[in-house]
Computed example of a mutant assay.
Amino acid sequence: MSSNTTYLFIINPIAGVKKQERIVSAIEKHFQNSNCYAIYFAKDKTAVEEEIKTAVSKNIRYIIAVGGDGTVNIVSKYLANSDSILGIIPTGSGNGLAHFLMIPFKLNKNLKAIEKGTYHYIDSATINNQAFISIAGIGFDAYIAALFNQSKRRGFFTYLKFVIRAYFRYKEQEYSFIADGKSYKRKAFLISFANSNQFGYKTIISPIAKIDDGLLDICIVKRPSPLIAIFIWPMIFLKKFHKTKYLEIIQAKEIQLKNQFHSPINIDGDSIINENDVISLQIKPQSVKIIDYV
């Protein structure tokens, strides 16, 4: 990273060698005869975080996450309230935020938007002081995220296999929470806190979600029977899940949820062990600058 660097590409190596080579080749071709860009291959989370913090301190204008939702999470949390602008080249499994924001998967189109450089502001959020930009949650989704992250196999069908196997044994739990000062008690299969509208793979948990409205969507999901779930499942992809009795959405800026079970939490697709008795969430309005892709 030199003093002339305008674009820093953070590449997650889990994408695979061939995909990495294709991405690097496209970047080099697009910015040929220019020294305005740098490419950093992520070694581990700590090293990536140090690289991003250094880039932000040097006021690198554009920092591009090349990976999935986890990579975007790592990059974006250090860009919040900074002068640096977030770009995303989606190469992960679910790519939930990229699908939600309609970010182009074609490299040439994506790089053209990055080079053009116009941007807008979006919200981010925190859960127990850990940043997220897309979605967090507790319950069944965090349980599936833990199984998926431990698996050597990736992709939608691996994800679906875990969902089907776990569905029959995972039970609803009682949750108590306060949202913007109002108390609630709900029995739920899972509770998601949505800044964007989906987990990934276009599984839409909150069709009404907006990423720049200064609100989190608390998505309280009841467990339908396996037979009814067969008919409910397509409605998730059709953005109609909120029209069923199995989903309730409450919007709020601040949330405190009792975590008497010390259940793990899902943060942008990664399952995190959590031993706090209370889970606290807060929206951070208009805190991240992101490239205009649409």
Rank of each mutant, 00 (worst) to 15 (best):
F193G: 05
Y167T: 07
P226I: 02
L257S: 05
F199H: 06
R186W: 05
Q256S: 15
I220H: 07
S176A: 11
H262R: 12
S196G: 07
E254M: 11
I208R: 01
I249W: 06
K239P: 03
I265T: 08
F193S: 09
I211L: 07
Y167N: 05
D268Q: 00
K171L: 08
F231A: 11
L190T: 14
I267E: 06
R186Q: 10
S196H: 00
K258M: 10
I191H: 00
L216Y: 12
S225M: 03
F241P: 02
L227E: 08
D180I: 12
K243I: 07
Q198W: 12
T244S: 09
I279T: 04
H262L: 12
Q282C: 13
L215Q: 05
S196V: 02
A194L: 04
Y167P: 04
F168D: 08
F162D: 01
F162G: 00
Y201W: 01
K182C: 13
E174A: 13
I230S: 10
I279D: 05
K240Q: 12
L215M: 14
K253Y: 10
N266R: 08
N266C: 13
K187R: 15
T244P: 05
K222R: 15
S271K: 00
E275H: 14
I208L: 11
D180T: 09
S225F: 10
P226S: 07
I283H: 10
D268S: 01
I273Q: 15
L190G: 03
I232E: 07
F193K: 06
G181P: 02
I211H: 07
F237C: 00
H242N: 05
I220R: 03
D180W: 13
S176Q: 11
F199K: 00
N266S: 14
N197V: 04
R169D: 11
Q251V: 11
I250K: 10
Q260W: 07
I178W: 08
D277Y: 11
K253Q: 15
R186S: 10
A252S: 05
Q198M: 15
G214V: 09
E174C: 08
K182H: 09
L257Y: 05
S263D: 15
A188L: 08
Q260H: 15
A229I: 01
Q282D: 12
I273R: 15
L216E: 06
D217P: 08
N197I: 02
S192K: 02
D212L: 12
I164W: 06
Y167Q: 07
E172M: 08
L238Y: 06
T244G: 07
K243S: 14
S176I: 03
I272W: 05
K253T: 13
K171P: 09
I236C: 05
I220L: 09
I279H: 01
T203I: 15
I255R: 02
R165N: 15
V163I: 11
E254I: 14
G181L: 06
K239T: 02
K258C: 02
